[in-house]
Structures are given as structure tokens and as C-alpha cells.
Design a protein around this nucleic acid. Structure first.
Length: 147
DNA sequence: GCCAACGTTGGC
DNA sequence: GCCAACGTTGGC
């Protein structure tokens, strides 16, 4: 899962009470579908810092609540407000994630691009701007091992 | 700040 | 349903 550290970084998650945050504001159908259908309780997730000086994987978190309506879409004062989503027919979903650990170093996008083993990763493929992407068990183990 | 790559919107 | 215009993402 990507987040811009200027907006919400892994240390912001660390500082949350219970170290839990709801992953609101995602307004992309593919990403929503993953939170709605694919992400299950206890699933581990990489935290990726995007749109910053050194983009890359910075830590690990865990799904502690499965997909449910993103209430930030209902609030006209919220920057992620969407009039087409209402509580009766919520369009956008989110999950809750909990801090697990911060990696000892940033595994940078530049480094990730260098491994043939990761060539199939959605993150690596050119032009992929999804904010939530799948990681295969092999890719997960590989990245943990180089971290 | 630039710009390529996407996703969304809306006229037709 | 097509597709041009537009907005956004995010690396660089």
C-alpha cells in the first residue's frame, strides 16, 4: 500500500493510538476491489512511501479489519468527499491496518527495479499508478530476505 | 516543475 | 459505445 509520507508516513502510523489507522481516501476501483475482496484479516502488507525523495518500501503492517465503507466519502468537508457515495449505497471501501514494524532500511524503488526476481511485480511495471497492489508469496519472501 | 501513463468524464 | 479532453499520479 502506497502513501505519500508528507500526508501519512509509517511513523504517523506508529504514533497512532493502538498503532491502527483506517486506510481512507482511496478513489480507484481496482484498489477498492482489493480492499473489498482480497485483503483478509491478518494479511501482511508492505508500507510504501510514494511521491517523495526516496520512494520505496519502509515497513510492514497487518490488516486488522476487512473491507467496510469509507465514511470519508460521506463528509462534504472531507477532501475525499464523493457525492455519488452515500451510506445506503457506499461506493468506496477501506480496511484498517496496524503497524507491525519499520524496516532497518528503505528498500528503494530503484533497488527493487534491479532484481530480475521481481520483474513481474505490479509495482515495478511501467506506468502502474495503483495505490494498492498485490505481492506474491515469492515476492514477499524475496523482499523480506533482502531487507 | 516536467511529463508519461493512466483513469474518468461527457459529448456525440 | 467511442474517444478526445481533462485530471491525477508519481518518478525523475
Amino acid at each position: 500500500m502506497k502513501s505519500e509520507p508528507d500526508t501519512f508516513s509509517i511513523s504517523d502510523l506508529y504514533k497512532k493510538s493502538n498503532q491502527i489507522e483506517h486506510w481512507d481516501g482511496v478513489r480507484n476501483y481496482q484498489a477498492r476491489n482489493m480492499m473489498r475482496d482480497a485483503m483478509k484479516l491478518g494479511d501482511q502488507v508492505f508500507f510504501y512511501h510514494s511521491n517523495c525523495a526516496v520512494p520505496g518500501i519502509v515497513g510492514i503492517m497487518e490488516v486488522v479489519k476487512e473491507g467496510y465503507p469509507d465514511f470519508s466519502a460521506f463528509d462534504p468537508d472531507d477532501p475525499h468527499f464523493d457525492a455519488k457515495s452515500d451510506p445506503a449505497h457506499p461506493r468506496w471501501m477501506m480496511v484498517d491496518v496496524k503497524y507491525v514494524k519499520t524496516l532497518c532500511r528503505i528498500i528503494t524503488l530503484q533497488e527493487l527495479k534491479g532484481y530480475p526476481e521481481l520483474a513481474d511485480m505490479a509495482l515495478i511495471r511501467r506506468g502502474n499508478r495503483l495505490s494498492i497492489m498485490p505481492v506474491s508469496p515469492y515476492q514477499w519472501a524475496f523482499i523480506l530476505a533482502i531487507g
